[in-house]
């Protein structure tokens, strides 16, 4: 049975109808211990069926070392959302429930090369960055505040080649979650050191980036 019903499929079709740039959804699966890998592949395939601009590639995290290196993948399952170039948008785990919104906005951002909700001052700040920023957002599929936080990360990654944005479904990556003590979501971790709890406005994220550099 299809994962997406007709109504959702129609909405997705509309959202992805006019992307200026082609978007590749590059999936890395694990051969073992991955209960949701098939779901992820099925989901991105159904999304790609709605739009000519979206294509799917599937690789094996343990076998396809050249691709793992090309996309700098350190864990799986993951979807790399790649537009005209690789802006650094990654979704780790199944983008189910509210997180489906995050994936779609990621595709839109990658397909337009433009952020959705950043103001001029934030864009200027990002354009002037001269050091790399690793921006991780931990989420759960049932958290209504999480897509807002995740989209902020994707937006910032699209605006600056120095920012890479990893959105992580926390319950699927327990080891990583325990490394950062993720016990509440959304949780933003900037450059492994700065911790911003909750869905935060751009100004707070910019402050955290500042403190981390």
């Amino acid at each position: 049975m299809a994962l997406l019903n007709e109504e959702i499929r129609g909405q997705v079709r509309e959202m992805l109808a006019e992307l200026p740039d082609a978007v590749r959804l590059v999936v890395f699966k694990k051969p073992e211990d991955c209960s949701y890998c098939e779901t992820i592949e099925e989901l991105v395939t159904e999304i790609a069926e709605t739009s000519e601009n979206v294509s799917v590639e599937v690789y094996d995290f343990t076998q396809d070392q050249d691709k793992v290196a090309e996309f700098k993948i350190d864990k799986a399952p993951v979807i790399a959302i790649v537009g005209a170039r690789d802006y650094g948008l990654r979704f780790f785990g199944v983008p189910a429930n509210y997180e489906f919104t995050t994936l779609l906005h990621g595709i839109q951002a990658a397909g337009t090369g433009k952020s959705i909700q950043l103001d001029g001052a934030t864009k200027d700040y990002l354009a002037a960055l001269d050091k790399p920023v690793h921006y991780q957002v931990f989420v759960t599929p049932t958290c209504p505040y999480c897509p807002g936080a995740a989209v902020m990360a994707f937006d910032m990654a699209v605006e600056s080649d120095l920012v890479r944005a990893d959105v992580v479904e926390a319950s699927e990556f327990p080891e990583l979650s325990s490394r950062y003590n993720v016990m509440g979501v959304p949780l933003n971790i900037i450059n492994e050191t700065q911790r911003v709890e909750g869905r935060a406005p751009a100004t707070m994220i910019v402050e955290a980036i500042e403190s981390s550099l």
Partner: peptide
């Protein structure tokens, strides 16, 4: 311990306590 095991939103944070 807010955000470190203490929460006011089970809907958001429940899945972390599987």
């Amino acid at each position: 311990f807010y955000g470190r095991g203490l929460s006011y939103c089970a809907t958001c944070d429940g899945p972390l306590f599987k």
